[in-house]
Computed example of a mutant assay.
Amino acid sequence: MTNYFERVNALIDAANALDPNLEEDNGQQISKELLYSQRMTSMLEAFDTSASEALKIAARAQHIERWRSPRSDYPEGRTGYKKWRANLGLFHAQRTAELMEEAGYDADSIDRVKYLVQKRGIKRDAESQCLEDVICLVFLQYYLDDFATKHDEAKLIDIIQKTWAKMSEQGHSAALKLNYQAAMLELIQKALS
């Protein structure tokens, strides 16, 4: 790893530490997107021990400064949601590019990370697929339980099935090894049957 890598990680962490939304982790309050980036980094390290520098940056920056583009700024419904997600991907890619440039990266490295952050080429590009797998694993490990408190069983099954469809076989294998509460494991098994 380069000195640039250490610099860009510090810049990403500093940006995400400004998130005013807090989440509890191990009894401590931490900025939500900083915690998410830490979870993404840890999951990538466990999932792919040979991940490239570009992939590591993309994982850490996946939700960079997400609070600056709230879902509530877009219309309700599927069309509004899709527009928000598309604009969010562009925002994350551009913000990451700015921080990479500040850290000293060249244009080719920046372009590769922007491509990954926007999750282009899933199912065709091995690194994009790896990033998608890690995103899904982080969701299943840390955020599915919260979704379960807000949605009925039919919606949860749909979410699990859509998540599963995005993942590779390696991702499926890793997902089945995660620790779930008994009720959640039962729901996942129901969704996959």
Rank of each mutant, 00 (worst) to 15 (best):
Q129D: 10
E169R: 10
D48I: 02
W67P: 05
H63V: 00
D133S: 11
Y143F: 14
V113F: 02
W67M: 04
L140A: 09
E132C: 12
S173W: 01
H92Q: 13
Y180V: 05
D73G: 06
M100L: 06
S72F: 05
D145Y: 09
I159T: 15
R112C: 06
K83Y: 00
K56H: 10
D73E: 12
A59D: 00
E76S: 13
K177T: 11
D152R: 05
A148P: 02
I135K: 09
P75D: 13
T79V: 15
L176D: 06
K166R: 15
H151R: 13
F139D: 02
A183I: 04
N87L: 13
G104F: 10
Q141I: 00
C130I: 14
E45I: 01
Q161N: 05
T49V: 14
K82A: 11
D48F: 04
Y105V: 04
R68Y: 01
M100A: 08
L137H: 04
D111T: 09
E169S: 11
E153P: 03
A107F: 03
R66S: 03
A183K: 12
I110Y: 08
A59I: 01
H172G: 02
Y143P: 00
T96M: 06
G104N: 08
G121F: 09
F91K: 14
G77K: 11
Y180P: 10
T96R: 06
R78Y: 11
R95V: 09
A46C: 09
L99I: 03
Q181A: 14
F91C: 00
Q118H: 00
A97S: 14
V138W: 01
N87M: 11
T79W: 06
Q129V: 04
D48G: 00
A59N: 02
R85W: 08
D145L: 11
E169T: 13
A59E: 00
A59F: 01
T79E: 15
K123R: 12
D125M: 07
A54F: 04
S109V: 01
E65N: 11
F147N: 11
A183F: 06
K114Q: 15
L55M: 07
G104P: 08
T79Q: 14
Q62N: 13
G77C: 12
T163L: 03
D108T: 08
K155C: 01
A86Q: 12
G104W: 09
G121I: 09
R66N: 07
E169W: 02
D106I: 10
Q161R: 15
A97V: 04
W84Y: 15
M100G: 05
E101N: 13
A51R: 09
R120C: 04
A107K: 13
A174Y: 03
A51M: 08
Q181F: 07
R112W: 01
K162M: 09
H92W: 09
D145K: 13
L144R: 08
H151C: 07
G80P: 10
S128E: 09
T149M: 06
R71L: 10
G104R: 10
A182E: 15
A97F: 07
